[in-house]
Write a protein that binds this DNA or RNA. Sequence first.
RNA 1: GCCGGCGUAGUUCAAUGGUAGAACAGAGGACUCAUAAGCCUCAAACAAUGGUCCGAUUCCAUUCGCCGGCACCA
Length: 479
Amino acid sequence: MSEKKSFYITTTLPYVNAEPHIGFAYELIVADVVVRYRESLGEEVFFNTGTDEHGQKIFNAAEKAGENVESYVEHYAQEFKKLKELLCLSDSLNFIRTTDERHIKAAQKLWQRCKKDIYEKEFEGLYCVGCERFLVQRDMADDKCVIHHTKPQLLKEKNWFFKFSKYEKDLLKYLENPDVITPDWRRKEAVNFVKEGLEDFSISREKGRLSWGVPVPGDETQVMYVWFDALTSYISTLGWPDNEEGNFKKFWENGYTLQLAGKDQIRFQSLMWQAMLMSAGIKKTDQIFYHGFINSGGQKMSKSLGNVISPYELEKKYGTDATRYLLLRHVHPTEDTDVTRERLDEWYNSGLANGLGNLVSRILTMAEKYAVSTVDTIESGALLPKSHYIDNFNFNEYMEHIWKLIQAADKEIQEKEPYKKYKTDPHIATKIVSELCTHLYEIALWLGPIMPDTSEKIKNYLYNPKKEKPENLFPRLNA
RNA sequence: GCCGGCGUAGUUCAAUGGUAGAACAGAGGACUCAUAAGCCUCAAACAAUGGUCCGAUUCCAUUCGCCGGCACCA
């Protein structure tokens, strides 16, 4: 009995208080490449993303927008769902919202499963009346709220706390396995966090102060703090706990689980979430990959600086596959990368217009003119892509490999000169172009996970018996 | 302050204890199937100092410079 390997992958769930960020688009694209690659190897894949919709910030953002919170989060959830089309994500994508009924039930169930590690304690914090919330250090300057310039008051309230400190040893043990965090130096960072000591953290808020959250089971006065709620989504999307025998068992317990997250997420994903899983007696995550950030002009993207580059803008200017190309080829998987519009244009022209697009154009033009029959030669010659690059998140190198194939094909045309030979010996010219078509097919196969649409287009052209020359795949941008 | 990372051609990155690779940008050349694209050639770099070593860009130390994280921030 041969059973398919099952593979689970999830992004983090973005908070819906702003438009989708290019960094999140990158995370989705990375996930999608892994998904398409794994599927091409015949594995069964569960691909998850979603939206995190509870919490004070969202409640405030809705108020500010003059909307009720339900319709506000609904609007944003749809915005994020649109990314699927925008970025050409695999059809198999699952989408979980933390306001989904099944998720709310799961969060409450997980709470109960962790009950032995949850206790009541006085929470003391600096509360800003203007913000209607407790402030953290970064919200303050000179002991005053940075927004309202007023002194916050010291307030106490009863909260539920999670015994995070209890799991220091278990977490260190978990972190001994080099596979659990990629890249490895982030794992060392996580180990250091634990060694510095963990404090129990509050996992609930008083309802009177914040009502927009999942009710704490057995305590009418409290709602869950967003973290506890949101992290549960990674398993609620699998039908846990109602359907423990189904997808949860197949993908989480018996499959390989991979989470993707930004580099600022270590504490939450690799420590808090893992401690929660330990407490609940659920299998821990097999691997978490932390990517870097995308900056612009040497600085973080921010509206006030006016250097924000949005996924919408990229798609509109370059198209979906080109957007995927630009991010995967040029964004460093684990380090921060600086991106500017000028650089994007350069990358587009050199890689896609001059490189891939031009190659497709010149080969297919000859195939059309010389009436080359390609269909029969394609299958035999092309090699199926199998590469450790994607397993190791080395997308740049995977791309380098493809572009070397492109260059080799360009070189071959130059050296064998089929366009010249056609005038004297059409038979040989036809044979050369036929070989080139095979190379092109191979390139299309490699492009499959990266640029699915382009890959299909090229294959279709090659199979097109009429050999009609297609339109330019990537028209050159002129400055 | 603590922890971590980084400093390689104009730019973005790579590798390596023993001639430092590439891509983009730049200069020149021959061609024409192609999106004035492609091909060939050229020019261009190991932050500084000290140490270990037969030999260091690579290991160690120091200095200078840059960046990130340091918890309830999604």
